[in-house]
Design a protein around this nucleic acid. Structure first.
Ligand SMILES: [Mn+2]
Ligand SMILES: [Mn+2]
Ligand SMILES: [Mn+2]
Ligand SMILES: [Mn+2]
Lengths: 219, 219
DNA sequence: ATATTTTTTTAGGTTACTCTAAATTTATTT
DNA sequence: AAATAAATTTAGAGTAACCTAAAAAAATAT
């Protein structure tokens, strides 16, 4: 139905819509996110519009149609299930799996993905703490708190990370921070909002606000 | 390095070379096998030749170069490992896995395939009894016997099937014949070479020579 | 309300892969 | 050894997905 390229556009539009709380996504946003020139993006928007996967009016940005959204979510489902397969079964670490999942998510068999889901025990979250949509597209919708917003002596359990570049994830590995880790905020420096935290039951160190802002916790 | 399309051509050339015991593969052979018009095949042959993946002289057919052969075998390795994953872990039957593996074999990560190999326990054969090349391209090379060539009262263990269309595999499912099954030839009709066989320890029935010719056994 | 800047679209091209129709080469028959 | 048939290549074209440069529209600043 949709080509690999079209699938990538839909996924990108979906993720930009989430970041902008469903406001129209602009051509330039897509161009920047996908590293494809704006003129090329315009071409593809016309095509996706003709296929009724997006709502598109010249100069007005785009929104996913119902069909487009379902398709986007089904690709995200595949991406996250494959990521979990790679960490759980093949023992890759969370900083290695994204790129491979970018390819695996385009494997078309619906049956394959349902079997994979069962094989993994119908998981609810991927290795980065992102929710895995079920086969109807529904996904867990918890509200998490930014680590940087916790008060002194407050504890949180790492739920998700916002920034997911391998370099950031590898840094968290060094700090022993992963999904599920309990973090307690012990102190905050007024000047730069850096935090002194304890991780798990052992170590105690300081992290910048830049890092804290990219970690979401449940209380 | 090589595109999905190029990979499919190399795989096709490899399999035709095996069938013709390494004689040059013709443009028309490829055209028929890949269901792509001969003119298009010629275009691609020029391209693969420029990349030194095949030996190609106008009108003279093609052979894989050393590099081309290594690449073809690495794709076959991926194909067969994914097929085994699908049967062993996701519980698909041998008649369902080929199509999915046709897509999965193009996922590029070398690391992924090495981990998958380990996860499956470094298997030697795929669900159809075909040998899985190891990471250096070496594969088991047993000599098997055609079921149709067994003498009366001779036994064999099913090792591979030649024809691998889903329809044929499903028929074998019905007959309870799979890789590993022991078959004993009890009688042969002179007129049409059809065989009366016993399968495993139970059933006893007749199969046509057409079917027998597509089953290879070890003695 | 104009002028300037920024964003987006259009116009015209390129590459990868496919096609049909015509030309050429090789193989087979007579 | 021609003549005919079959296989292969060339020529010309189309679609998908990209690009740069120029034009047009929208947003911002004066
Ligand atoms: Mn990812
Ligand atoms: Mn993820
Ligand atoms: Mn197969
Ligand atoms: Mn196989």
């Amino acid at each position: 139905m949709a080509s690999l390229t079209e699938e990538n556009y839909l996924k990108s539009i979906h993720s930009l819509m989430e970041k902008s709380s469903s406001a129209p996504v602009t051509t330039n946003d897509l161009s920047a996110a996908m590293k494809i020139k704006a003129a090329s993006v315009t071409d593809m928007l016309k095509k996706l519009s003709a296929k009724k996967l997006i709502h598109y009016k010249k100069y007005q940005g785009v929104l996913l149609t119902h069909t487009g959204k379902l398709l986007a979510i089904s690709i995200i489902r595949k991406h996250r299930l494959w990521e979990l397969f790679l960490t759980e079964k093949l023992k890759f670490s969370w900083d290695q799996v994204h790129e491979m999942a970018e390819e695996l998510e385009h494997v078309s068999s619906q049956q394959l993905i349902e079997r994979l889901d069962a094989f993994l025990g119908h998981p609810k979250f991927d290795p980065h703490g992102d929710p895995i949509p079920d086969h109807n597209g529904k996904m867990a919708d918890y509200k998490f708190f930014n680590l940087s917003s916790l008060t002194i002596n407050e504890k949180g359990k790492v739920a998700t990370v916002i920034e997911q570049q391998p370099s950031f994830l590898k840094h968290l590995n060094k700090l022993n921070i992963k999904v599920g880790t309990t973090i307690k905020v012990l102190d905050r420096v007024d000047f730069d909002k850096s935090l002194t935290i304890s991780v798990g039951s052992s170590s105690l160190f300081s992290i910048s606000n830049e890092i804290a802002k990219n970690i979401l916790v449940s209380k």
